Simulated scan of single mutants.
Amino acid sequence: MSHGLLSTETTADLRSVMRRFPTGVALLSTGRGDEAVAMTINALMSVSLEPPRILVSVLDHARARPVLERTEEFTVNLLAGEQAELARLFASRTKPTGAGLTDHLQAMNRNGTDCTVLPGALATLSCSVEATYPVGDHSLFLGRVERVVAPADSSAPLLFHQGELAGMPALATTGTH
């Protein structure tokens, strides 16, 4: 007798279940010059505020992984709701690389810290890799946040849910933080 529950023992079941959990969407970039790459990610989390650390998950056969390991630095741009087309572009096999990234990202250096800012992003986090953890078919990169760029005005975030990208409607603020 089936109770409508999915088995958690298979990859397909796990993928099906995780599609039910909405996540934010970001653009990870790493490398310089011809080696520069960027990719859409949704496996990102804040690990610690003191000291500031984030964790990103990158598929082992992604173009960005060996570059990330070599450079030991990356930038994460948190995508706004109206940036779904950019998320799709950088999730595709035909994503721009090298000099092609300059059409989308702006290089910025302040106080000796480089980062690639995506205009219109909710925020930009420039990180150095502190540790790498191979896990299954992915690698987890623990990043020490070196710099945060956040515009004063913030729009609604881009979300990924049930295999679709969509802007999140603005939530009413209650005045509490």
Rank of each mutant, 00 (worst) to 15 (best):
V37S: 11
F90V: 05
E50F: 04
R32S: 15
A170F: 09
A87C: 05
F21M: 08
I41K: 02
R63P: 05
T75L: 12
G33K: 08
P119V: 05
C115W: 14
G4F: 06
E164W: 06
R144A: 15
Q83S: 03
E130N: 12
T97H: 13
G167C: 03
L44T: 03
D137V: 07
V149I: 15
L101Q: 04
V58M: 01
C127D: 10
L142Q: 03
V67Q: 08
A131H: 14
N42Y: 00
L159P: 01
G120W: 05
M108R: 06
T124P: 00
R32M: 14
P157M: 03
P151D: 10
V129S: 04
S46F: 08
P52F: 09
L165S: 01
R93P: 03
P134L: 11
N111K: 11
E72Q: 11
A84H: 06
F90N: 03
N42F: 01
M108F: 05
T23Y: 00
R63A: 15
L68K: 02
F141P: 00
R88D: 10
V37A: 13
N109S: 15
T116E: 12
L165T: 01
A170C: 09
E130A: 15
R70Y: 07
L14Y: 13
E35G: 11
V47Y: 10
L122R: 03
A99Y: 12
P151Y: 08
G100V: 09
R15Y: 02
P96V: 12
V76H: 03
L165R: 01
Y133V: 11
H161V: 05
A152M: 11
G4I: 03
P169Y: 01
L125I: 13
N77M: 09
T97L: 07
V145C: 14
P151V: 09
P52G: 14
D34C: 08
G98I: 11
E164C: 04
S7V: 07
T30F: 08
V17M: 13
G120A: 09
V129W: 03
E164N: 04
L158W: 02
A36Q: 10
T174W: 07
E69K: 12
A152N: 12
G100T: 13
T174D: 14
L55Y: 04
C115S: 14
E82Y: 04
E82N: 08
M39Y: 06
T173C: 04
P52R: 13
A26P: 00
E164R: 08
G175Y: 09
A131M: 07
V25D: 01
D103R: 15
V135Q: 05
G81H: 02
F90P: 00
S2Y: 07
R65L: 13
A99S: 15
R20H: 05
F141E: 02
G98H: 12
E50Y: 07
G120R: 04
N109C: 14
A99H: 14
L105N: 02
G98Y: 10
Y133N: 03
M45D: 08
E146H: 11
L79R: 00
T10W: 09
L55S: 06
T75D: 07
T10L: 04
Y133K: 02
